[in-house]
Amino acid sequence: MNMIEIKNLIKTYDNRRVLDDINLSIKQGETMVIMGGSGCGKSTLLRHIISLARPDSGQILIKGQDITVMNEARLVEVRKRFGMLFQSGALLNSLTVGENVALPLVEHTKLDRKIISIIVKMKLELVGLTGFENLMPSQLSGGMKKRVGLARAIAMDPELVFYDEPGAGLDPITTAVVDKLIMDLTKKLGITSIVVTHEMKSAFRIADRIAVLYKGKVVDIGTPEYIRNSKHPYVNQFINGAPDGPEPLRRSKDDYLSRLTSFDED
């Protein structure tokens, strides 16, 4: 069965179609990388899958349940089963590292304090941060914050983990470490992973399949090998990092002369 099934998803902001009829299915246990340039709608797509935003039309089925029509209470039940790693880690700055990782457990389970503290230690161990429980997030580096965020995301033993730009703002070595963690978790714990990124290197490293988004549409989808040899002109431009192509160098719809000689009314 497919873990996630997205059907005809459409979202419009201010007359601009950010998501234009997206269809995507993600199998259980696979790592799906959603790739695309800035402003292609990949973050918006992620916000819809984790139901932080509601679509104009279309369905998002997680394990066969449509989350776009759910009420808050049922949504909470679904959300307990997935984890999310935010771009900056999104740790609560008023809590210690340990309290951050423990937060979902404290809020959603009736486990004893001691058991929670053991789980927290285990999760921190998994991301390679043993003994960091009592530090505050402000004392950590960007890469460490992200790793703590990852520990928090897997605190409830989710079946599904989302990653928003896991490599953003990290040096190549730390990026590789985070990528390795993602791969390990997926293999060891059998987690289904959805990774949103525009970094080619890590995308090809961790992906089972890659979906390329362009102007709110999925233009190509397949294994890393398939994407590397894709015939689609935009995918080609994206992978080779060419400045000009289907995505033009200059963003201008009007004629050059008329643009120069026009004056704004306001």
Binding site: I50, L52, E72, L75, V76, E77, R79, K80, F82, M84, F86, Q87, S88, A90, L91, L92, N93, L103, P104, E107, H108, R152, F162
Partner: peptide
């Protein structure tokens, strides 16, 4: 406001923790 900007509110939401209650 700082929590909103740094995605902490979104994080609470995705953990199934109601930010209004929390």
């Amino acid at each position: 406001g700082t929590m909103t900007v740094s995605e902490e509110i979104d994080a609470l939401d995705t953990m199934g923790i109601n930010p209004v209650r929390y």
